[in-house]
Structures are given as structure tokens and as C-alpha cells.
Design a protein around this nucleic acid. Structure first.
Lengths: 120, 120
DNA sequence: CCTTGCCTTGACACCGGTGTCAGGCCCTAC
DNA sequence: GTAGGGCCTGACACCGGTGTCAAGGCAAGG
């Protein structure tokens, strides 16, 4: 499978797949041409990468998940290294939730102040 | 008051104050030197700007708040234009909260799957 | 006069995943 | 042979608030 076909099947672009490779997430072989050659298993890997990116992981965070999948596991998160990243990210998300909640509270308070002024 | 003094009093840097000016948030007068000259009221404005930035507003969002303050109001958010921005930002924050909550849920689920595997 | 320290403008760097373009090679079909 | 489409590498743009550096003007004190 060439890069264009994999990109289309994964719902992304060749540019993006080259970026993943540049950051050590996928390692396609090369045809005599120099063209990248992907086997079918890579489609699953790319889907895992994109799911994790959509959840806010960075490319470096994703490496253990990909390694876990390549090691034959049924899912990328069932390995200790992946679990460590999951816990770190969970704590990070909780921090963001706290911050956003505080912001939301301040916004709400200011909006209520305005309403009170409208009916003094 | 020169830029360095205002920066120190506001807990920020001259670079940052010049950036605010470049984006139309403050309009200092100039000495014969060409040096920016700020009056004391600008300290309050800069504090308002920094509070709003810390809550995730962009510089363009902040303009109505500054205008509201300059118009003599006791707070930057008691004007219709400011209120509209507040409501927009509140909706945005709610969207982020929903996304983060969904992510958090997925992370939690994956972590629980791992625990189950550890005691099968 | 010289140093020191503040000010001025202008510009690049950062972050991170992706779009997009340039210039060029490879292969197939006509 | 040539037109078209896929591939290759390399590079810049984006976003937005801030740090940081360069090169130079201005003021005060030795």
C-alpha cells in the first residue's frame, strides 16, 4: 500500500503520515522507487494515533501506545508505559478542568452582576 | 509614568505593554523624547487586560472591556458589548468543558480496563 | 567625555499538527 | 515522446502572547 492509499483509508493526508514517520511513530519500508510501502496492519496503528491525538496527547506521548500495539496486544493502552502516560494525561486534564471551571464561575458571576444592574 | 515603571507596577514587561498598544488596547501619549507617557488610570486598565487574558480572552475580545472602563464605568464588564463577549466566551468554555469531560471519561475507562486485566 | 540605564523600533523564536507550495523523480497510457 | 498523476524532500505559514536580541537615541552623574 502506498502513502496516498493509506492516507485515504485512514481519513487523513500523506503530509500527516510523513509527519508521524518523522516523529518515529511509523516505519514504512521502501520500494525500489523510494516510495513508502505500508502493510495492512499500519492502518490500525494510524487509527490509534489519530484517536490519541484527538484526545489531546502529543506525538511523543503516543509512542508507547504504538509500541504496545506492535507487540501484539489487542489495544495500545494495555501496557505499563501506556498506562503511565494515561495517568499523566488524566491528571493534566483534571487540571484543565479545574482551571476552566474556575473561569466559568468568574464569567457566570460577571454576567449575573449585569442582570442585577438591569433590574435595580 | 514611563513604560518601565508601569510594567513593574502591573507585574509585567515593557514588551507586553507595547504589544497591548500595538493591538489598540492602550494609547499612551509621548514625551518630547518619544518616550511613552502613562497616567495612573492606565494601571487599572492593564490589570483588567491581564485578568481577562488569564481567563482565556484574546486581545480583540478585550477591547470592549477597556472601552467600558475608559467610559467611566466602575468595571469593564458592565456594558452591552462586554456582556456579549462574556456570553460568547461562556459558551466557548462550556464547549471546552464538554470536550475535556468526554476525554476524561475515555481515559478513565481505559485505565479501568487495565486494572481489570491485572486481576482477571 | 564616558558610563550606565532607560527608552525607541524591528525582528526572530516558541509550540504542534497540518496545509500548501516548489522542484523534481517515477510510472503508465496515449 | 509526452501528458498526467502519484511519489519524493524541503521549507514556509498558521496562532498568540511573550522572551529576547540588535542597534541606536536620550538623560543624568562621575
Amino acid at each position: 500500500m502506498l502513502i496516498g492509499e493509506l492516507a485515504e483509508r485512514a481519513g487523513t493526508s500523506p503530509r500527516t503520515l510523513r509527519y508521524y514517520e518523522e516523529h518515529g511513530l511509523i516505519h514504512p519500508s521502501r520500494d525500489a522507487n523510494g516510495y513508502r510501502q505500508y502493510d495492512d496492519g499500519e492502518l490500525r496503528v494510524v487509527h490509534e494515533i489519530r484517536a490519541l491525538l484527538a484526545d489531546g496527547f502529543g506525538v511523543d506521548d503516543i509512542k508507547p501506545f504504538v509500541a504496545c500495539l506492535r507487540a501484539g496486544n489487542s489495544a495500545g493502552h494495555v501496557c505499563p508505559d501506556s498506562a503511565a502516560v494515561l495517568r499523566r494525561r488524566l491528571a493534566e486534564v483534571d487540571g484543565y478542568l479545574d482551571q476552566l471551571t474556575a473561569v466559568r464561575h468568574r464569567l457566570q458571576t460577571q454576567l449575573e452582576e449585569i442582570k442585577c444592574q438591569m433590574t435595580p
